[in-house]
Design a binder for these strands. Sequence first.
RNA 1: GGCCCCAUAGUCUAGCGGUUAGGACAGCGCCCUCUCACGGCGUAGACCCGGGUUCAAAUCCCGGUGGGGUCACCA
Length: 496
Amino acid sequence: MTTAFPSAVRVRIAPSPTGDPHVGTAYIALFNYVFAKKHGGQFILRIEDTDQTRSHPESEKAILRALRWVGLAWDEGPDIGGPYGPYRQSERAALYRQAADSLVQKGTAYRCFCTEARLDELRKQQKVDGGRQGYDRHCRSLTLQEATTRAQAGETFVVRLKMPIDGESVVNDYLRGEVRFENSLIDDQVLLKSDGFPTYHLANVVDDHEMKITHVIRAEEWLVSTPKHEALYRAFGWDIPTWVHLPLLRNPDKSKISKRKNPVSLDYYRDAGYLPEALLNYLGTMGWSISGDREKFDLAEMISVFTFDRVSLGGPVFDLVKLRAMNALYLRELDDQRIVERLRSWRFSDEYLQSLVPLVRERIELLSDFVGKTDFFFQGDVDHMAMAADLIPKKRTRAETVELMKAMIEWLDVQRDFAAPVLEADAKAFAAKVGWAPKEVFMLLRVGATARKATPPLFETLSVLGRDLVRRRLRECLEVIKRLPEPAAAPAAKQP
RNA sequence: GGCCCCAUAGUCUAGCGGUUAGGACAGCGCCCUCUCACGGCGUAGACCCGGGUUCAAAUCCCGGUGGGGUCACCA
């Protein structure tokens, strides 16, 4: 496995701006970055925003900011451009349409006019029969002329790839060697959606080729779709890049890392006070080792000795306790002045303090009161256990409260705008929707987000805290509530 | 469920045919010490199971089991 890499190494991280900047993105970006730098190559950032309904420009901004925070700088990207731009897929739509069309003309892809209803029905039937899952290739037998006529008549269609019907696909993964797939089990993948936008599969392959990507270093979840990608490269007549599928980061229960079970947003780590270099170092120990008895190393050192041969394939559990210990190591190494600087750029900046003062100015009588009134703004996780008695509202059961908290977290997960007035209006709407009194909802929100019953105005407070801290704390709070005993019935007899 | 990947302590890992199976976090104990923390020392704790191959398997092969991923007009 010790192939020499050409100096023209070009790799990429291709996040989709559909949510928070994800630790998994930083993880994969790190290995791409390090590999590129090791071989004097380029590290490219490409935004995969082909999902019209789920992509958001704020999310893209957040991803760029977070990647910068963590210390990974790209050589080409949507903000700085580069020779193979644009680096945002929504700006390359024509390219994909053209690519899909060329495949249709060549006969390696075909238009499919099947309706969603038919596909649903098909899936349902397949479930009953227990046979082969997936598209039945109904439209594959249409002639090009037939299909063209129907398309020109205005019928909506998608473009699907013609996978080989038999034989097998052998994918060469750099870390695992040959992986075999039976072609008959692989779907005729949709390449172009009915809205004219490409799917991941098409856009990704086209761009990786156009951008001259040599090594596709991505998460293991993509391994099984790699034969489709290879089929696409072949259909175009393009060279296939080297595949490197890294193991997936895991929750403590070993499932794929998820926001429900782990803080997953890079902004959370920033706001909770983790040092980016410690986070990066920790990510570097996930599935990779620098040597047998060392685990503390900086980026430069990782680059200097990097090789994929030291990757281990078991899915590493992302352990907050260990990360914290790593962070402590880095913190202790900083001299006093540097720690002061870090604190300033974290939460002791003039800017942040100024956002706090309006919230507490009427509530403090001495300057020294400030600290006690604002402590939860300077904490990461907060002690909900101490609030156990106030977590379940009077007249509510634990089960009801759990459901409410779940619904509230779901709502906040999609709440992009954290400006106080917006939050307030949306919170009221939320309360109405779930049929709870606003004051009940607000108190739960308050206690969940701050572990306090008395705080500055709720929505201003949430706004300043920021969505990542709020959502993490609510999740923690939910876990605490779940473990609480059912409160005694409301008019419960008081014990003497 | 089909297909694919994976498998060393609770967790991250070293190991790549012959080791008293090494390191780190967490745990426990002791030392340092006005407390706590840091630091130091120590301690407990692992090769998933079963077959092969071999003089010799944590290491190679096969099977099982377990975990994970994936089966979208999401990425």
